[in-house]
Design a protein around this nucleic acid. Structure first.
Lengths: 258, 258
DNA sequence: CGAGTGGTTGAAATCCGTCAAGAATAGTGG
DNA sequence: CCACTATTCTTGACGGATTTCAACCACTCG
């Protein structure tokens, strides 16, 4: 049952640790707080998913290993993010801590699901956790969809800044290594490094430390790659306007595929 | 309320259309079936998300338009897939039909959420819909994470084959155009075309029609890109074995970040 | 039959991954 | 506290892959 109980984790306690509100707060009393080292496995693919985790401090990576040995980071988990909530009985991916001083809280899944069945509000909170994950995955899809690597790195920086210090501040501290960033962006670590240097050379960011940087031109980071796109001509790639009003209110042909 | 009621859709009826079981079946009685033309907008980003949709036939694309005019397809929707279930009050993305003869069912969101609050089983089904979408998004992340375009196209073909005709069959009918595939894989349409040709030249697939192909070597499609990866040496990129047992059962240092 | 969409293929420039070496940082032990 | 070492990070050079621009076919629809 508790087969995957994090026997390899430690510093367990039952102190609710954080006082900020969060979806599974009602279960804080039974939460298990674990503090873990730099590159520690928090849950492994294929093992029974008996625990839902929430990151309290630090950062964690959800990743898969490809048959060719390449690692792909599927989700980047910061304080407040949940992981381990799956549809099936087992974990889909491996999650490992990416930073020192990473702390997670573990909630018993059975308890959560039982609570959801009796408490509609709690059920909505559980749904919210899934929505949050959808949001993160979609954000990453948009990053991976960018064309050049400097663009990817730029969007990544903006995303991290937004998630770590919402709204305020130009200063960003990257919580993971270049290699982790590379596996997250599906590019090589060297190119990540080069892109950071190039962004600095362009005056878009300023590297004040290996993992600390300052955003100088947020506009340029988020958007274009210094291409001028004054050409707003609706290329066939961007059918912003779909077939205008032609078939808008008229009955579209009843599918020929019926 | 029904502000986004698909006035531009048509052929509405209240016949439950399909008899196969699905999560929102309990609401089939109030479902609105719509049949739509080739490139018709089903819901638009920013509009109030008052309807949850299910694809009955055909295919649909959930996409965003980048500031540079490029379109990115975020989700590919086949029969059985739901869309429009959001966390917030408005739709996050635009969804358009990608094939002729696409049919969708619309379920009132308010009804669904109300039902979920009073029926735990229904709440689980709603959660399942979110999990399914998570599953699709993650699958796409893995495709986008592949290195070469032939690999991306190969995984795409396998994924489509798996979703359209589970298990059986070598024959696949691509339900969307090359341009849609390109925007889904975040590559140029020309390269998609070239990759298909190359895969055929390699004897991995056989194009029997512009959108119909036959899988000849499923193994090669899913896996490597004819690179020999007999080198199973655990490069630093693939820490399959994390710090072995060193800190496995011993208390990891209590985070210095406390 | 002509127009338009969708699809394929070619050639050139660019971008990125790989290999390789060097620099900086952090962690360890004395 | 310092030196030592391993890791992480940066930069260079080269070859291959992809994008872009362009032209050319196939098919469908009116």
């Amino acid at each position: 049952m508790n087969a995957i109980a994090p026997s390899h984790l430690s510093a367990r306690s039952r102190h609710p640790s954080s006082s900020i509100p969060h979806p599974l707060q009602r279960l804080d009393a039974v939460a298990i707080i674990s503090s873990c080292g730099p590159r520690q496995e928090l849950c492994r693919e294929g093992q029974p998913a008996s625990t839902i985790y929430r990151v309290i401090a630090g950062a964690a990576l959800r990743s898969v290993i490809r048959p060719d040995g390449r690692r792909q980071v599927v989700d980047l988990l910061f304080p407040g993010d949940f992981f381990g909530l799956t549809a099936g009985a087992d974990y889909d991916n491996t999650v490992e801590s990416a930073a020192r001083g990473t702390i997670v809280a573990g909630y018993p899944r059975k308890r959560a699901e039982a609570q959801a069945d009796s408490d509609p509000k709690f059920a909505r909170e559980l749904r919210q956790i899934a929505f949050d994950e959808l949001s993160r995955l979609q954000a990453q899809l948009l990053i991976l969809g960018r064309v050049t690597v400097p663009e990817k790195v730029g969007s990544f920086i903006v995303a991290v800044a937004h998630r770590l210090s919402p709204g305020c501040g130009d200063r960003v501290t990257l919580p993971i290594s270049r290699y982790d960033i590379a596996d997250y962006l599906a590019v090589s670590a060297e190119t990540v490094s080069r892109s950071l240097s190039e962004l600095q050379r362009r005056g878009v960011i300023r590297l004040t430390g290996t993992r600390v940087l300052q955003i100088l031109d947020r506009e340029a980071l988020e958007e274009h790659d210094h291409h001028d796109w004054l050409s707003s001509l609706p290329s066939r790639r961007a059918p912003s306007q779909l077939p205008p009003a032609s078939c808008a209110s008229t009955p579209s042909r009843t599918a020929s595929a019926n």
